[in-house]
Write a protein that binds this DNA or RNA. Structure first.
Length: 500
DNA sequence: TGTCACTTAAACACTC
DNA sequence: GGAGTGTTTAAGTGAC
């Protein structure tokens, strides 16, 4: 068996760092019990579940869905959770707030203990005690974030970890958190491997920074600070972090030419295009921190920060909002469309542009391919019955285009330009490259002159763009929301009428 | 059994 | 030259 076959056999989703939702969002959403080194069962087995958490769960039906935020499902083929499970998750999301959004009044006004006692515990709930989703969600309450004085306030005080949103002076590290308010089990958890993927850790680190961009070193630092586990862990995790940064499209490299005199490497920021995905991932994980990342930073964003409009202002979107958000994403990610990306050096964003709003908690984005893939899918549409069309939310992880799948079989699968430029990449992606790696000393600079970011550039097809816009517009129309396009059209119409 | 979504390790190139 | 950084490949794990 040659290496090609071998890797094909073994690697499976080794292109896992697909920065698409599969990587960014699906990861956690699907639960910790999946793969890799993060075994939720293992993790939970190392921890004692606080009794209060067991009691909290009895409040599951007390919150209106709206407060819990949308139930964001994964793509149909993958995340088909049983209805009961969904309900459970939905309810659990109500536990101290969907994604940490519930204010204290909602969350803790009534004693959870009392409530739970009032309700008693049924047999079915006993069964639910073993629900990993529940464990996962509740344990993650330890990661409570949020605005001081709000939901996070009370919880954050008990949080063993951090207050991401919080001020720098706030106790954020393990040492400071091992206060009297921290239970032993919580302290233990600090020394355990966090049940978060590296991509989310990185995301949190970056989002925690005032400038929304960090050098690798600072990312290390943040992770070390908040997850002391890594301080004693083998240094391989740093490699994993770098690996993630490199491979995950969610993260973008920003040249630190401006202002930064010394220091190696670049700054890394979250690609706004994928930011909702990450947020969604956190939300799906019911990670209360998601809320922190759904709100604009307390401090005014710096020049390199994502514009505030990129933040989700309200994570408790209604379903219709979600559909609309999908369309907005489509609009924003259409080829040739202006990318509201703070990392782009193309120029400042026009914040006044209504259509630049990027907001989405949309499950429909939770497919495996970014807008680029969507473009591909729509342009190549077709042949595959499994290929999702735009109106059903695009390809899910299991519904990706066969070619995409093929690509993914290689670790470079997600490089979007494989078929647009750098024709040799297909061969490499297809493992058809028998030549030894790094054959040429200058190969690196030659092969990747502009890094992965350059490879993301896709030749825009205007007609496709229009199709996407139309499709998005239809979605918005169905959702009862006007797109900027529509608005523009209407305003143009009205202008015409006025002229007449 | 194959696929997927990861983690981990390692090799290598580049920059400081 | 060494350390840090960035990229890429390979392999392993566990759930679905």
């Amino acid at each position: 068996m040659n290496s090609c076959e071998k890797s094909k056999k073994n690697r499976g989703g080794s292109g896992a760092h697909e920065p698409t939702l599969a990587f960014c969002a699906a990861a956690v959403a699907r639960g910790y019990g999946r793969g890799g080194g993060y075994d939720w069962l293992k993790w939970t087995s190392e921890h004692t579940i606080p009794a209060t958490l067991l009691l909290y769960r009895h409040r599951v039906h007390e919150y209106p869905p709206g407060l819990m935020g949308p139930i964001i499902g994964m793509s149909p083929d993958k995340k088909a959770e049983t209805p009961g499970l969904q309900e459970e998750r939905m309810g659990l999301r109500g536990v101290c707030g969907g994604a940490g959004t519930l204010p204290e009044a909602e969350c803790g006004a009534a004693s959870p203990l009392a409530t739970s006692l009032d309700r008693g515990s049924g047999g079915s709930e006993d069964e639910e005690l073993t629900n990993l989703n529940w464990l996962h969600e509740n344990l993650l309450q330890n990661f409570t974030l949020g605005t001081p004085g709000e939901a996070g306030g009370a919880q954050a005080s008990a949080s063993p970890l951090f207050d991401i949103e919080g001020d720098p002076g706030a106790p954020q590290n393990a040492s400071s958190s091992s206060s009297s308010s921290t239970s032993p089990s919580q302290r233990d958890s600090l020394k355990s491997k966090p049940p978060l993927s590296f991509s989310l850790l990185i995301y949190m680190a970056i989002e925690h920074s005032p400038s929304k961009s960090l050098p690798v070193k600072d990312i290390y630092g943040w992770i070390l600070q908040h997850f002391p586990y890594f301080s004693s862990a083998p240094t391989g995790w740093k490699n994993s972090v770098r690996h993630n940064l490199s491979l995950n499209k969610c993260f973008r490299k920003v040249e630190r030419s401006l202002g930064k005199v010394n220091g190696k490497g670049s700054l890394w920021c979250v690609d706004p295009e994928y930011r909702p995905n990450l947020i969604q991932a956190l939300k799906k994980q019911h990670f209360p921190a998601a809320h922190a990342f759904c709100t604009p930073p307390a401090s005014p964003p710096s020049g390199s920060s994502p514009p505030s409009h990129l933040f989700l202002q309200d994570c408790s979107l209604k379903e219709s909002d979600i559909d609309a958000a999908t369309a907005m994403m489509l609009l924003n990610s259409a080829p040739g469309h202006h990318h509201a990306n703070p990392c782009d050096s193309d120029g400042p964003l026009d914040l006044s542009r209504p259509d630049s709003v990027l907001v989405s908690c949309d499950p429909k984005q939770d497919h495996n391919y970014s807008s680029l893939a969507l473009q591909r899918c729509s342009s190549r549409s077709s042949s595959s019955s499994s290929l999702s069309s735009l109106d059903d939310g695009g390809p899910s992880p299991g519904q990706v285009h066969p070619r995409a799948r093929q690509r993914r079989a290689g670790s470079e699968g997600f490089h979007s330009d494989e078929d647009s430029d750098l024709g040799d990449r297909d061969e490499r992606g297809g493992r058809a490259r028998p030549a030894p790696r790094r054959s040429s000393p200058s190969s690196s600079s030659v092969r990747r002159p502009a890094g992965k970011r350059a490879r993301r550039e896709v030749i825009a097809k205007p007609e496709l763009d229009e199709e996407l816009k139309e499709a998005a517009g239809s979605l918005l129309h169905l959702a009862g929301i006007r797109t900027s396009m529509e608005i523009n059209k209407r305003s143009a119409k009205s202008k015409k009428l006025n002229r007449k």
